[in-house]
Structure formats: structure tokens, C-alpha cells
């Protein structure tokens, strides 16, 4: 947005003020996320920059909080770091356990949400779909209904059918929460889909299954993958349902962070946060690349 040559002085001043305001808002958006990264390398148990850190003295920085993270929950954290020590880490480190749980729960709920969601999106994007609007409203509602209500309902439901405190219960709950994201991203991809391609495939003798895997799938794949990533992040970041329906065995990363924040917040939480920020940067990069690829496939060019 360039300033025109004929702009008055007042307009010029306003233009720069406006840019500064925008800069400050961007700072408000991004600073809280980036601030945890340097603080997680603090050598002191403080949540602020020490004098050593500000003068870039190496003594002010350390990996001690990452070490705390790894050794928390171990039988013998202070033993010599040999093969046995690492076995102890693998078997007993609390954060590794919960990270494993998070990954498995995330993986299975993502598969469930993506497979069912993609199929449904294919149906929903057909013009002949009956009751389209009402069904769409039901399928999107897990995103809109407050999470505390979902968790309360699931607590009653799972207790009555004996799924409380089980992995299957958590996975099903997380899949439900991820479904709206899959539906939204996949139907958005299908809006630009040229249905004469499937007719062409059919006229050339392909059956519906072949058409799906050879023609439709490659074209909508970027949308499906973004939807799957959304579903994974939803599960990976979910804490309230886990609080209500999961037991000690099904603790996840956010659940453990919740404990850490509520009980006694230590800079070790900041090192988890830093790792999660790195994960989200990776995910965002993948999603952006996919979006560009999808736009290219659909013939939308960037100006």
C-alpha cells in the first residue's frame, strides 16, 4: 500500500502512525510465542531475563531445564549416563511417556477423523446431497460447542458405557473434535474441483474406486493432508477432555503441562513450550507449502 504522491502532510503522518500501530499489533501477536524460547535456556529458576542473559554471558544460559525435563520421573536420574541410564529415561521419564501417549492418541484420532471426514466431505460437496445444510451444521458443531460441555457430556456417556479411563475413549473423543477441521479443509478443496474429470474417468471405463484413487485423490490430497494436520494439532493440544475422561495412564503433553502450570510452574514448562513452538513452526510450514501446491493444482495463480 504505497502512499500516493499527492498525499497531504497529515495523511503522510497518519500513514506512518498506522504502520507503527500495525507493527505493535504484530509484536503483540508474535512476542508471547517467541519470548519463551530464550527464557527456556535460563540458567536461573526465573521467568525473566537475568543480567547475564542480557549481556550474552554464556554463564547465563544453560540446558538445565531440558535436562530436568528428560530426567523427571526417572528412578535414578543422577546415575552415570550410560546405556542403563538411557534405558531408565526410555522407560520412566514422565515427559517421554506423555509424549508417547500424545503421539499415539493423536495418530489414531487423526486417522479416524481424516478417513471418515474425507468420505463425508466427498458426499457433502455433491450437489444432490439431501439435507446438506443441516448435516453440515451437525458435523461442524463439535468445533462451536464449548469444550467444557463436550467434556461433561462425554464424561457421563463414557462412564455409563465403561469407556472412561481408556485409550479408545480419548481417541474417539479427539477424533470427534478433529472432524470439523477435516470437513472444512477438504470441502474447501473440493469447491474448485472439476467434476467433469470424474465423468471423463467413468466414460473411459474406470470404476468409482479407481476414479477415486487415480483421479480425485491426487487432486484433493493437499487439502486432505492439511485437514489431517489440523485434526492432529487439535488432538495434540487438547486438555479438557483428557482432564475429564482420562486416567493416569492416558496423560498427554498438554495434560502434564496443565499440572505443571497449576501446581508449581517451573522453567521446565518453558522448555516444553519451546519444543512445542518448534513443532508448530514445522506444521505451519508444511500447511503453507500444501496450500500453495493445492492452489497451483487448481490453477489459482499468485499475483
Amino acid at each position: 500500500m504505497a502512499l500516493p504522491k499527492h498525499a497531504s502532510t497529515l495523511e503522510r503522518i497518519w500513514h506512518y502512525v498506522y504502520l507503527v500501530i500495525c507493527g505493535l499489533i504484530f509484536l503483540f501477536l508474535i512476542a508471547p510465542i517467541l519470548i519463551v524460547i530464550p527464557l527456556s535456556f535460563n540458567s536461573q529458576p526465573y521467568f525473566t531475563f537475568t543480567k547475564e542473559m542480557l549481556s550474552f554471558d554464556p554463564a547465563g544460559y544453560s540446558l538445565r531445564w531440558y535436562d530436568t525435563l528428560l530426567t523427571f520421573g526417572m528412578n535414578a536420574p543422577n546415575a552415570v549416563r550410560d546405556g542403563n541410564w538411557w534405558r531408565d529415561v526410555w522407560n520412566n521419564s514422565t515427559w517421554l511417556q506423555v509424549a508417547g501417549n500424545s503421539l499415539w492418541i493423536g495418530l489414531f484420532s487423526t486417522i479416524l477423523a481424516t478417513v471418515l471426514g474425507t468420505l463425508a466431505a466427498l458426499g457433502l460437496s455433491r450437489p444432490e446431497m439431501p439435507y446438506r445444510r443441516a448435516i453440515m451444521a451437525i458435523l461442524i458443531s463439535p468445533m462451536i460447542v464449548p469444550i467444557i460441555i463436550v467434556a461433561t457430556g462425554m464424561f457421563f456417556f463414557y462412564s455409563s458405557i465403561g469407556l472412561a479411563n481408556s485409550f479408545i475413549g480419548v481417541i474417539m473423543a479427539h477424533a470427534t473434535l478433529g472432524i470439523p477441521f477435516v470437513i472444512i479443509t477438504v470441502t474447501a478443496t473440493l469447491i474448485g474441483f472439476d467434476h467433469s474429470l470424474t465423468r471423463a474417468a467413468a466414460s473411459l471405463g474406470a470404476n468409482p474406486t479407481t476414479t477415486f484413487f487415480k483421479v480425485i485423490m491426487p487432486l484433493i490430497l493437499p487439502g486432505v493432508i492439511s485437514g489431517a494436520l489440523f485434526a492432529f494439532v487439535t488432538s495434540f493440544d487438547e486438555v479438557v477432555v483428557v482432564l475429564f475422561v482420562a486416567d493416569f495412564d492416558q496423560q498427554t503433553i498438554p495434560r502434564q503441562m496443565w499440572n505443571g502450570i497449576r501446581e508449581q510452574i517451573s522453567p521446565a514448562i518453558l522448555s516444553v513450550a519451546t519444543l512445542l513452538v518448534v513443532v508448530s513452526i514445522c506444521l505451519l510450514t508444511v500447511v503453507e507449502l500444501l496450500r500453495r501446491r493445492s492452489e497451483k493444482l487448481r490453477g489459482i495463480t499468485q499475483s
Binding site: 501477536l29 508474535i30 510465542i33 527464557l39 521467568f47 525473566t48 486438555v239 513450550a273 503453507e288
Partner: peptide
């Protein structure tokens, strides 16, 4: 990216950051 990165970052991470920033011995007060 400035808008989307917060969108993709864990809610608990963002909440933790605000605790770190805003507490009485935190960065903003300092």
C-alpha cells in the same frame, strides 16, 4: 505468518507465555 503461527501454537504454550510475561516478577513488569 505472524497471524498463523499463534493460531497453530498450542493453547497452553500461549497461556504459559502470558503467565511468564505478566507475572509480577515477569518480563513486562521488569
Amino acid at each position: 505468518i505472524f497471524v498463523l503461527l499463534p493460531f497453530w501454537t498450542s493453547l497452553l504454550v500461549r497461556t504459559t507465555s502470558w503467565i511468564v510475561l505478566l507475572q509480577s516478577q515477569g518480563v513486562v513488569n521488569d
